[in-house]
């Protein structure tokens, strides 16, 4: 609605601009091009290197040459001690379960925070926000000892539980902001039609909230997928996630950083995320900025 008025006022001064040539658009395009290159060049370089022969690792030709798929073979080569397929599966399991738990639990809290009036609302929101900003390193020490004592080191739950500590607050915070902007009049009409508050929630609100929930799920999943600190300390060979695996990759040449293979692994991990993010671009931006602005 506000965008409509914005474009209306923006198009208005066009005749004025036509009078003389203005440098303003050209300057905008130059700056936009700089932003584009700054954001995409490293990403582009990762992909180019991923497809480059190891012998030409430090080739500086800006376009792809010496193209090979060997690096992707190295990534999955178990004889080199890489278990990347396993690592990918581990990341999917850990990030997937974390996201699921955070959503199932967080959706109720978000509803309460967005819709209900109760005492301590401010305090609860403050606690949840504080939790989302909590330094993960302050959890690693006690959990390291605790999980060692109860024999959980290197298990999936040892990775999932600490991941919930930052995904759940993020989920609640984002969902709360989304929920506040939903057409809640429909809930009231459902209640007038005889639904209880619980029924109105299940039958009217949940279907309406699905897109917001989905966006939040993507954000939570990306957060959990990208986690490194906790996974690097509490995982074992069997439960190592992709981020940890990429940081400690072994290549064909001993004592030589396998740059091209690492770039290939990075490409494998990143491309699905980038596609996901670009497809749901609008929603993700809305989710990221939700709460920061009113």
């Amino acid at each position: 609605m506000s965008t409509a008025t914005a474009t209306a006022t923006r198009t208005a001064p066009v005749p004025m601009r036509r009078r003389s040539f203005s440098w303003a658009p050209a300057r905008t395009y130059i700056q936009a091009a700089i932003i584009l290159v700054w954001c995409l060049a490293p990403f582009y370089w990762m992909i180019v290197t991923a497809f480059r022969d190891t012998g030409y690792t430090f080739e500086s030709t800006p376009y792809p040459n010496h193209i090979t798929l060997d690096n992707f073979g190295t990534v999955f080569d178990e004889s080199l001690g890489n278990h990347f397929a396993r690592n990918l599966l581990n990341s999917v399991i850990v990030a997937g379960i974390t996201t699921l738990v955070a959503l199932v639990v967080g959706v109720f809290a978000a509803y309460a925070l967005a819709r209900l009036n109760f005492r301590f609302k401010f305090a609860v929101m403050g606690f949840i926000l504080g939790a989302s900003m909590f330094p993960g390193v302050a959890l690693v020490t006690p959990l390291f000892q605790l999980f060692t004592n109860i024999g959980w080191m290197g298990t999936y739950q040892a990775l999932i539980i600490p991941s919930i500590s930052f995904t759940l607050p993020l989920t609640v915070y984002t969902l709360t902001s989304f929920f506040r902007e939903m057409p809640w009049e429909l809930e009231e009409s459902a209640r007038i039609d005889g639904c209880t508050q619980g029924q109105a929630f299940r039958k009217v609100i949940l279907p309406l909230a699905a897109p917001a929930t989905f966006t939040t799920a993507i954000l939570a999943f990306i957060g959990a997928w990208n986690e490194f600190l906790i996974a690097s300390q509490l995982s074992s060979e069997q439960t190592k996630t992709v981020t940890v695996a990429i940081a400690s990759f072994t290549g064909a040449q001993p004592h030589q950083e396998p740059y091209t293979a690492v770039m290939a692994a990075g490409t494998i991990v990143t491309i699905p995320l980038v596609i996901l993010v670009l497809v749901f671009q609008r929603k993700i931006v809305a989710g990221l900025t939700a709460g920061a602005v009113k």
């Binding site: 936009a32 932003i35 584009l36 954001c39 995409l40 490293p42 990403f43 370089w45 990762m46 290197t49 990306i222 997928w225 990208n226 490194f228 992709v242 981020t243 940890v244 990429i246 940081a247 740059y259 690492v262 770039m263 990075g266 991990v269 990143t270 995320l273 980038v274 996901l276 993010v277 670009l278 671009q281 993700i284 931006v285």
Partner: peptide
């Protein structure tokens, strides 16, 4: 441009670290 700025954001930090370590 709005799509492009999301690319660095969506790359895992560990991958970013390796990428810049290489560069």
């Amino acid at each position: 441009i709005r799509a492009a700025v999301l690319v660095p954001w969506s790359i895992p930090t560990a991958v970013t670290a390796k990428l810049f370590f290489f560069m």
